[in-house]
Design a protein around this nucleic acid. Structure first.
Lengths: 271, 271
DNA sequence: CGAGTTCTTGACTACTCTCAAAAGCGGTGG
DNA sequence: CCACCGCTTTTGAGAGTAGTCAAGAACTCG
């Protein structure tokens, strides 16, 4: 038995006309979903491997990255609690490596079984399509970021994206969020050296815009930062009416961590 | 009536067990596919618009790009003859602008009707998924390109990608292909100034690697260029067995241009 | 405490952008 | 035919940005 999170609710029950938690759990179980836990740094899926799963991040941060021949890596994107990971394969093989940034718990849905329920549950297919589209939009935005912005604006943009993704819809001049990424990780995501990233961070701090320390980011002035970064969060808002995901009803029962009293690294959802 | 191209064959008949050209045409027509022609520079779809179509490029080059506030643009990708354009929308709106580079002819499939045939024709759904995955892989590769390679390697990598995409599977040290992109276009795709791109091009020419002139690119030495760019074409090869697309049977009848005796800018496929 | 990782700074080098200007090219109209 | 125009390509010089090498400080964890 697993805890019913807003995220799980989200993927399995998008139409907001509940058929009951029991039915949802039954569906998740009938799909053969599995819980897996990874420690920081663990490789969840390696480049070139085949992947037959759709993954839902239940807690922790995941990076999708590609290794380069010279040993460096480009982080393509990071994935947070509630994100759906649909690894796209070319000729059957993943083009990216999925790596746990910190301790990560993931719910794995066998792709074939998930697809097989599309007919009875078109809202699941729609959610997958929306998640893919969002992923695509994020990639496009990262492309713009790397292609057309200097180090400071690039950094600012990524921080604002992370702020919006960790705390969707938050308003106010100052925002703080937890961020397990190291400066080296962030530099890999932003296509610069860790050294230059560190200097950029110092500049932003001196401007009174952002304070970074391992584990947490404090944005002092969202508006000035957004102006610097030319940031517009529209690309992150997946749903037409802006509030399609009504997870409030479930907030009380599931924000906490998953019990991972599992044998070792993974545990089947159903006994 | 439209000409039956290998590309159209590809999208409508992936399983290689032909049910006959007539049936395929009937399907295309029953889907309400439309032919549209655009002159160079025309906007096919603007950022922020809704798109209810899947598009197949029949001839010409299309760029997907985003406009930046400062007037510059980032070209995300280019789309060539045979490419399927599945514009991903976030909250219903396109995140990119589709622009014709040169004269372009496009076949438009209404998305809803295309989706409605997935059940009887799962190979079409599979092809759409494969096209999306390939698009994604290309985006990832461009991300790596912008993030981790210098101007020369970046340019080399993009030229090799274009060579592979225009002439898939071509072997040999030297390759030439038509390319209607201007230096400014290429610079926008590669995230650098047209001026710096021009200098980079001169360096590559002086090294005896690439010769560019408006309309055509000549790669003198694929192997040295691939080494410089750290280029591996795997991400472009969509199909597991490497030869899944058997368009040879249709090569004789359709490589030529579409008749576009259409009234002006667009024409319905069916009378 | 010691080891390893992460963060920070300095000095120098290399790369890329900006501003400025000129040359080439293809079309249009006189 | 030629002058003219706009667009594209090419080159130069100087400024600004980012990478490299080197080293030290701070932090975490056993």
């Amino acid at each position: 038995m697993i805890t019913l999170t807003p995220e799980l609710f989200r993927i399995l029950h998008l139409d907001r006309h509940s058929t009951g938690a029991a039915a949802i759990m039954a569906l998740a179980e009938s799909l053969g979903a599995r819980l897996r836990a990874y420690s920081a740094g663990a490789i969840i899926l390696d480049e070139g491997e085949t992947s037959a799963c759709v993954r839902l991040v239940k807690s922790g941060w995941v990076a999708s990255a590609t290794q380069l021949r010279d040993g460096s890596r480009q982080i393509i994107d990071v994935h947070l609690k509630g994100d759906l990971l649909v690894v796209s394969t070319v000729a059957g093989f993943s083009r990216v490596t999925l790596q746990a940034i910190d301790r990560v718990v993931i719910l794995e849905f066998p792709q074939q079984r998930l697809i097989s329920v599309f007919e009875q549950r078109p809202e699941i297919a729609r959610y997958l399509a929306a998640a893919s589209a969002r992923l695509n939009a994020i990639h496009v935005e990262h492309l713009v970021n790397l292609g057309h912005r200097g180090a400071a604006a690039r950094t600012a943009h990524f921080f604002l994206e992370l702020a919006e993704r960790t705390n969707p819809g938050t308003e106010g001049v100052a925002v703080e969020f937890d961020c397990p990424l190291t400066q080296a990780d962030l530099a890999d995501a932003l296509g610069m050296t860790a050294i230059h990233f560190n200097r950029t961070l110092r500049d932003l701090r001196l401007l009174g815009l952002v304070t970074f320390r391992k584990g947490s980011v404090l944005i002092n002035d969202c508006f000035r930062l957004a102006k610097l970064a030319d940031f517009n969060p529209d690309y992150l808002r997946t749903y037409r009416d802006g509030n399609a995901i009504d997870s409030a009803a479930f907030d009380g029962e599931s924000t906490g961590d998953v019990r991972d009293s599992a044998p070792s690294e993974s545990s089947a959802l159903r006994a």
